[in-house]
Design a protein around this nucleic acid. Sequence first.
DNA 1: ATTTTTGCAAATGATTTGCAGTCCC
DNA 2: GGGACTGCAAATCATTTGCAAAAAT
Lengths: 150, 150
Amino acid sequence: MAQSTVSTMLHRLETRHRITVSRIAVIGLVASMPGHFSVEDVLAQSRGIGRATVFRTLKLLVDEGLICRVLLEDGRLHYRVSHDTHHHHLVCKECGAVEDFTTCDLEGLIAGLSVRTGFDITSHWLEFYGLCRTCRETVPASRNAILTPS
Amino acid sequence: MAQSTVSTMLHRLETRHRITVSRIAVIGLVASMPGHFSVEDVLAQSRGIGRATVFRTLKLLVDEGLICRVLLEDGRLHYRVSHDTHHHHLVCKECGAVEDFTTCDLEGLIAGLSVRTGFDITSHWLEFYGLCRTCRETVPASRNAILTPS
DNA sequence: ATTTTTGCAAATGATTTGCAGTCCC
DNA sequence: GGGACTGCAAATCATTTGCAAAAAT
C-alpha cells in the first residue's frame, strides 16, 4: 500500500521534476506516516537529509497536489497524502484520526452568498472536528468543550 | 464607531481582568484596523508596548471572544474584531475585504456525515475566498486561478 | 497589601536563504 | 555539460518565557 503510494507519487513527479535520492526518501517517509503529520514529524525521521530539503520537498508535493494540508482546530497546519482532488477532512480531536469526505453540499450556500454579497466565490476551507466512534466511547462525557474556531 | 468598539471591549474585559494602559492601547489599535490584521500589523504600531504584551493581549482577546481568527487562503491566521458569536468569513483575495455571514447551513451535511462516519462532530472551520464586487470589475479575468486549499 | 500585568532581553522554534558542491538527465 | 537539486550553516522571522519592577484593585 505504502509502496504503491510511493511509486505513484514518484511517477507523478518525474514529468516536471527530477527524481533524487532525497526526494525518494522524503516521499517514503510521507507515505509511511499514519494519518496526518507535521513537518516536524518528517524531520524527526529524515536522517542524512538536510532540513531545508525536507521543507522544499514538502512544498513541492503540496504544489503538485500529492499531499494536502490539514487544518487543525487550533490553526496549525499538518499534511496528509492526498487521495482525491477535492475533499475535506473530519478530524478526531482525541486520536487524530482523519476521515475524508468529498460531498460538500455548499453549492446552495455559495449561490446565496454570491447574490447577497456580490462576491465571486472561488474557493473555500472546510474542516470538521469531533470525536471518532472509538474515542466517543472512551473519552469522559464531561470533556465536551465546544470550541468553534471560526 | 471605533470608540464604541473600544469601550465595549473594555467593558467586557473588566469583569475578569485588569484594565491597563497597555491593554487599552492594544484594543485601540485593534479597533482601528481596517478589516482583518496580523499580529505584525499591531506590533508595527505599538510603540512603547512590549512585544510580549501585544501577543498576550491578543491571545486574551481571542479567549474572551472579543476578536476572532480569520484563516487566510494560504493558511496564515489573521484577526478581526468579533461582531457575532458564531459566524464565518468571506474574504476577498484581492483587496482583503471581509464579509461576515452567520447562516451556515451545514446541519444537513453534518448529520449525514455523523451517521456515515460515526463521528460526533462538535465544531468546524469554514471560510470562503473570492473576489468582492469591486475587485471583480478591476482584476483581469485571466487571473482566475482556482486554488482549493482543502 | 496583594495579585496581576508589564517590559525587557534572551530563549526557543520554525522556516528560509546563500552558496559551493553534487547529482540527474 | 548544464541546469536542477542538495546539504550545511547562518540568517530571518515569529512567538514564548523568566523575572524583577510597576501598576491595578
